[in-house]
């Protein structure tokens, strides 16, 4: 059952009948999220799909603490008021006045880590995101390609040491090959770290390939949550396997029918 919450909940975030409304300048109200009930478990890789305006990004912003619930509630593990989150934007947002090194370790500099620790982390992060430290650490964002910027942004988000990593269409705008590489990199990152990921995407294949569960959204509601039972690590061959194709059909049906 989609909207059922378990009592022995051990997750890190839980939404209960959460509703978010937007007011336009003319005073008109629109629904961002409507009566959403969902729980996010530790080490979850939750992918969220849906049409434009279905509430995917609102869900992400609610989890990031950038929105408040207008009705219902959002609660976090260990009775925390809010989670430590990191948000990766679809527009490759990096601080343009900082070098790759400074961007990567920005979260460390905010918490006043030592210069030595920052340098060490920057070097390692650069390697982790698949870029050569010697060639990239001293570059400015304007000197990077779209894919490289995305990797640096992801490195920065990971260095925040967040409980929850929120990704807003991180592979949009990439060509297929770079998208596959980025997805492979993301899966490895998730397996090697203890981070919980919630990723919004328009791409059903990406959602099914990366997610442990796929949340299908329609008009601000959760239409269906599809469990992905494919074992990890997922291989390139899994993309073309029957299991994934069947799952993609199920997700597509949920999106078309809106869960009815």
């Amino acid at each position: 059952m989609v909207n059922e919450l378990t009592n022995d909940w051990s997750g890190i975030a839980r939404l209960r009948n959460a509703t978010v409304r937007y007011s336009s300048a003319s005073g008109q109200e629109s629904i961002g999220l409507s009566d959403v009930t969902l729980q996010i478990c530790e080490r979850d890789f939750l992918t969220v799909v849906g049409k434009s305006g279905s509430g995917k990004s609102t869900l992400l912003r609610l989890l990031a603490g950038l929105h408040q619930c207008d009705a219902g509630e959002i609660s976090f593990a260990k009775n925390k008021k809010r989670l430590k989150t990191a948000l990766l934007f679809q527009e490759n947002v990096l601080f343009p006045w900082m070098t790759v090194e400074q961007n990567l370790v920005y979260p460390l500099s905010v918490r006043r880590a030592s210069r030595q620790e920052q340098q060490k982390t920057a070097y390692q992060s650069c390697l982790d995101v698949g870029l050569s430290p010697e060639a990239y650490l001293h570059r400015y964002p304007r000197e990077l390609s779209g894919g490289e910027k995305r990797r640096v942004a992801l490195g920065m988000a990971v260095n925040h040491d967040a409980d929850l990593l929120l990704l807003d269409e991180p592979s949009s705008g990439l060509d297929d090959v770079n998208k596959w590489r980025f997805q492979g990199f993301l899966e490895t990152l998730w397996r090697n770290s203890r981070v919980t990921i919630v990723m919004v995407t328009h791409d059903i294949e990406e959602a099914a390939f990366l997610g442990s569960r796929v949340v299908c959204m329609d008009e601000g509601r959760v239409a269906e949550v599809v469990e992905i039972g494919i074992e990890r690590p997922r291989t390139f061959q899994d993309r073309f396997g029957n299991t994934l194709i069947e799952l993609k059909k199920r997700i597509a049906n949920a999106l078309i029918s809106g869960g009815t």
Binding site: L66, K84, F89, V93, V110
Partner: peptide
């Protein structure tokens, strides 16, 4: 200023004074 830069800094735990010195001032420089 690109509002995403402010959101990014806020989500990464930057407080208002640090946000002014490390994000707002460089962004308008």
């Amino acid at each position: 200023i690109n509002p995403d830069l402010i959101i990014l800094a806020t989500v990464l735990g930057t407080r208002i004074l640090t946000r002014t010195t490390r994000v707002v001032i460089p962004a308008i420089l």
